[in-house]
């Protein structure tokens, strides 16, 4: 066991019954490893980290890790995380979602969390399918692909997750794949450090449903495909728009600075307190109006 692996173990819950629920070979575990390595590298206090997830195979991730963890409802993790972050601003809140979770049922919460620029780190594990419920199409399933609810081929275009987050107002947006685990570590680390709404799209695969239905093959073959299909941002710049559209572009796509929701709301609190009258002090009683 090398040092990295040893330190990863110290973040796993010893009281939780392993093994995990994922199919062997699933990419979700790699994202979990990347998250742990990123947190370890920053040397953050476990008590000050909260992981909030939705429902799906991806949503099952937090329970295995020794942080403050919350498995919420399908699509709504960002809304729960918003309340938690506002109540406890000192927490680093990381939200883990699947593509269906974040963009179908949770699409509205996704754009509004980005628009508000609330200081959360969203990690979307994009396996382009509904894994947990058995391979129905998701908002990121590519055209023509097969799903259990698209037996003749899919006819809807996919959502570009990162572009959506940028347009909605996110401050940090990056994409990598589970093949590029080291890069994923780095992007997750940046995203957690960034103040404001940050998004890391971790492109993954689901060999159990998507791979089987589309005759792509095993987890190993799907990994190979990720490697072949992806290209770094700088290399992508040399391609024609047509060529680019066929690739998974990896890199930091967006990184800007602007005040986050909490810092602006702190000003609201200041203004409101300045308006307090003597009568109001009386009503609230001692310590009532801090």
């Amino acid at each position: 066991m090398d040092k990295d692996e040893r330190s990863a173990y110290s973040y796993l819950r010893t009281t939780k019954k392993f093994p995990n629920i994922w199919c062997s070979g699933c990419g979700i575990g790699i994202v979990m490893g990347a998250l742990i390595r990123a947190i370890d590298r920053m040397g953050l206090d476990k008590n000050k980290i909260a992981l909030v997830s939705g429902i799906g195979c991806s949503g099952r991730m937090p329970v295995y890790m020794d942080f403050n963890t919350m498995h919420t409802t399908h699509g709504r993790a960002l809304a729960f995380a918003t309340g938690l972050k506002l109540a406890k601003p000192e927490l680093k809140v990381v939200v883990i979602m699947g593509d269906g979770d974040a963009l179908a049922i949770g699409g509205n919460h996704f754009i509004h969390a980005a628009r508000r620029n609330i200081d959360l780190t969203a990690i979307v594990i994009n396996n382009q399918i509904y894994g947990m419920t058995g391979g129905q199409y998701s908002p990121t399933t590519p055209l023509e692909m097969r799903a259990t609810t698209a037996p003749y081929g899919h006819v809807e275009p996919p959502f570009p997750i990162c572009e959506l987050a940028i347009a909605a107002g996110a401050t940090y947006v990056a994409r990598s794949t589970v093949y590029h685990a080291v890069e994923l570590d780095k992007f997750i680390e940046h995203a957690i450090q960034k103040v404001g709404f940050s998004l890391v799209e971790a492109v993954s695969y689901c060999h159990t449903t998507f791979g089987r239905l589309n005759k792509i093959g095993s987890a190993v073959e799907m990994m190979h495909q990720l490697k072949e299909m992806s290209i770094s941002l700088s290399a992508a710049e040399k391609l024609t728009p047509e060529e680019r559209s066929l690739k998974i572009i990896r890199g930091v796509l967006h990184n800007i600075d602007k005040p986050d929701y909490s810092s602006l709301y702190d000003k609201v609190i200041e203004r409101a307190k300045a308006s307090v009258t003597g009568k109001e002090y009386m009503r609230a009683g001692p310590g009532g109006l801090e």
Binding site: V52, R76, A79, K85, L86, N108, H112, Y265, E290
Partner: peptide, 24 residues
């Protein structure tokens, strides 16, 4: 905000109760 508390208008009622639970 006068009491140091926070108010937020969410995107819908589903999110509203979710945020309340998160804050709690």
């Amino acid at each position: 905000p006068k009491y140091g508390g926070k108010f937020i208008q969410m995107e819908d009622e589903i999110a509203s109760l979710a945020a309340c639970i998160g804050a709690s």
